[in-house]
Simulated assay, not measured.
Amino acid sequence: MYQSKIAGLGKYVPENVVNNEDLSKIMDTNDSWIQERTGIKERRHIKKGDGNTTASMGAKAANIALERANISKDDIDLIVFATLSPDYYFPGCGVQIQEILDIHTCPALDVRNQCSGFIYGLSVADQFIKTGMYKNILLIGSENHSGGLDFTTRGRSVSVIFGDGAGAVVLTRSDHNGQGILSTHLHSEGKHALELSLKGPSTNHWVPEIIEENPQEDIPYYPYMNGQFVFKNAVVRFSEVIMEGLKANGLDVKDIDMLIPHQANLRISQFIQQKFKLRDDQVYNNIQRYGNTTAASIPIALTEAWEEGKIKEGDTIVLAAFGSGFTWASAVIEW
């Protein structure tokens, strides 16, 4: 059985910076309110006319990852694209990436596991490489949240949290025994699915129906989040799935060189850090600058940590995520 490793990383975020003061001009909020609850100072939003979409941002991140991996796009055997905000209802962004990057007729797979999407995609890619079916896989997480948020006071509890951006990795077979992805761990609990959800538009409830039924009232095609309930579940599931990954590999918390959690809320990351008694240099957070970029958050953070020299060969890296579904996941990697 083969082992997979990350051979190249890349990220892309829009140039348009939206800070908390900017949001306070269009809704009843302020910098201290946002930072106290989320830790976020600013985020990036696609700006009309800048040419950015979920797929195009993913392509920009992918080009960087391919170059760093020194792997040609012609050698890619599979594309895996994780997002909750595709450019179209269908087709998915995977085939769009194939067109943008002019990749041959390899398979393209779309993953819809929201905040856990990147780790779910990583697990899928890992299995394909382990079985020998594919050698080189391009995995992308990209989100255009700003195109579907309610930027009024009514939607502030959700809208202040999310940002746009993309991250990508190239996975390939590892030549070194024990180096690469050691294990991945995936979970879901569907009974809480609607506690963090977007009900419309959908095949059950299209936009014209919504407008006709509720011309001035509650609009269900904006995201809904039961914030306190999500937070309480997140801190439990984060802890469980991190420990599951460590135990599966005969490791302990003290063996973690770098924990990269999904950037959902800085308070969640801080809670986990304190619970596991990890130092600041053992946990990487960048939600302060980018907000929650859902499927893109882990690859963006992983790329930045590597670029900043905070990840080195031989390090034990733990990735963990929790989000809508509810879904949660972790991955343990020897770099």
Rank of each mutant, 00 (worst) to 15 (best):
M57W: 09
K135P: 09
Y89Q: 13
I272H: 11
K199F: 12
S56I: 12
A320P: 06
W306A: 11
I97R: 07
S72K: 11
I317P: 01
E195P: 00
E99S: 15
G227N: 05
P299F: 02
A248G: 14
S123D: 01
K41D: 12
P86C: 11
H192K: 13
F326Y: 15
P91M: 00
F128T: 05
G121W: 04
P223R: 08
G132M: 10
E67W: 04
A295N: 04
G94T: 02
D175I: 10
Q98E: 06
M1K: 15
T29M: 03
V17Q: 06
I311Y: 05
E217T: 14
P220E: 03
F326S: 04
Q114I: 14
G121L: 04
K254E: 14
I79M: 03
F162T: 09
T293H: 01
E99R: 13
N214P: 00
A166L: 06
N265W: 06
F128Y: 12
I242N: 05
E212S: 14
L139E: 07
V111D: 00
S146T: 11
Q114Y: 15
H45P: 09
C106G: 08
L138H: 05
S146H: 03
K312Q: 11
N286H: 10
I64Q: 03
G245T: 10
L246R: 07
D74G: 11
D126Y: 05
Y290P: 08
H187P: 13
N136F: 05
V124M: 14
K73W: 06
Y134G: 08
L319F: 10
P299M: 09
F90H: 12
E307Q: 15
W33T: 06
G163F: 07
G167Y: 08
K130R: 13
W306N: 13
Q273P: 14
A321H: 00
D22A: 11
G178W: 06
I161F: 04
V169Y: 08
